[in-house]
Design a protein around this nucleic acid. Structure first.
Ligand SMILES: [Mn+2]
Ligand SMILES: [Mn+2]
Ligand SMILES: [Zn+2]
Ligand SMILES: [Zn+2]
Lengths: 143, 143
DNA sequence: TTGCAAATAAGAATGATTATCATTTGTGAC
DNA sequence: GTCACAAATGATAATCATTCTTATTTGCAA
C-alpha cells in the first residue's frame, strides 16, 4: 500500500505518531474514523499518541492529500483514506454504518445547477441520512 | 404571512422573544441566518434577546417545523424559514452568498442510490461550495 | 555523534452550543 | 381585571470538539 517513507514524498517527516495514524487507517475495519476514534484505537493497541497530535496529523494528512475529511451530522469531522475516486455517502442514523456511492448523473446535474447560475464549483458534499435495515442494525423503527 | 398567534398553533406560547425572532426571519434581507447573526441583528434593532434564548428558540422552531437547520461549512448552524418546498444550496466560498436550487433528477437518483442498497431515506443534505463570480464578490481567484 | 529545526504532548484556550437556576412573564381560572 | 403557576427567559457556568502554547523530545542530515 504505502512505502515506509511514503510520508517524505508528500513533504512530511516520517515520525512515529504519523506512521501509527497512517497504519491505523490502512488496517482499520472501519474506513471512516473521527479524531477521537483514532485516539482511542491507538490507545487500545498500546500505541499512545497525544490527542493534540492526532488532530494536527489528521489535518496535515488532509492537506497532503492522504486523507479526506467529511462532516457527517453530529458535529465532528470524520476522515478516510483518499484513494482518488470521489464518492458520496449514505449514513445509517441508527447504527452509524456508512456506505459509499457514486452517481455520474448526480455529479453532472450539480455542475449544471452551478454553472447555470454563474458559479464555479470548488467542491460539494452530499450525505444521505437513512436507516440501513441490516439485520444487525438496532433499528427502532421497524415496520 | 404568519398570524400574530401562529406560534400557538404549533404548540408554543406566544412570547416576546419568540415573536421577535420569527419577525426577523420574515423581514430579514438574508434568508439564511446563524444564531449569532440573529442575536446581533436583534441587538441592533434594540430588541434585545439573550443568546441562550436565541439558541433555545431556534431549536424549538426547527422542531415545530417553522425553521429548517443547515450545516454549511464553518461549524455553525444556519436557519431559514421552512416554506414547505425542499431545496439544496450553492454557497459562495468568497462572500458567503447562498443560492437555492432544486433538481428533480438529483432527488430521484438519491432515492435510487439508497433503495438499491436497502436503505430507507430519512433526509439528505447537498451543499455545493463554489465561487459566485458576481461583480460585488471579493473573489480572489480571477481568471 | 552532534546540532537543531521540526514534531510531540500536556494542558490551557477557544468558539459554538447546551445546561442550570433564579427571576420574569404569558395565560387560563376566577 | 387580578391571581396563581407553569412555562419561558437570561445571565452565567458547563460541555464538546478542536486549536493554541510551550517546554521537551526526536528525526535526520552533516
Ligand atoms: Mn467514504
Ligand atoms: Mn435555503
Ligand atoms: Zn444501521
Ligand atoms: Zn461570492
Amino acid at each position: 500500500m504505502h512505502q515506509p517513507d511514503h510520508l517524505k514524498t508528500v513533504g512530511l517527516k516520517s515520525t512515529l505518531p504519523r506512521l501509527k495514524v497512517l497504519s491505523l487507517f490502512e488496517a482499520s475495519k472501519q474506513r471512516h474514523l473521527s479524531a477521537e476514534e483514532v485516539y482511542k484505537l491507538l490507545l487500545t493497541s498500546g500505541d499512545d499518541v497525544g490527542l493534540a497530535t492526532i488532530y494536527r496529523v489528521l489535518t496535515q494528512f488532509e492537506q497532503a492529500g492522504l486523507l479526506m475529511r467529511h462532516h457527517f451530522e453530529g458535529g465532528k469531522s470524520v476522515f478516510e483514506l483518499n484513494q482518488g475516486e470521489h464518492h458520496d455517502h449514505i449514513v445509517c442514523m441508527q447504527c452509524g454504518h456508512v456506505e459509499e456511492f457514486y452517481d455520474a448523473t448526480i455529479e453532472a446535474r450539480q455542475k449544471i445547477a452551478a454553472t447555470d447560475r454563474g458559479f464555479t464549483i470548488h467542491d460539494h458534499s452530499l450525505y444521505i441520512y437513512a436507516d440501513c435495515n441490516k439485520p444487525k442494525c438496532p433499528n427502532k423503527i421497524q415496520s
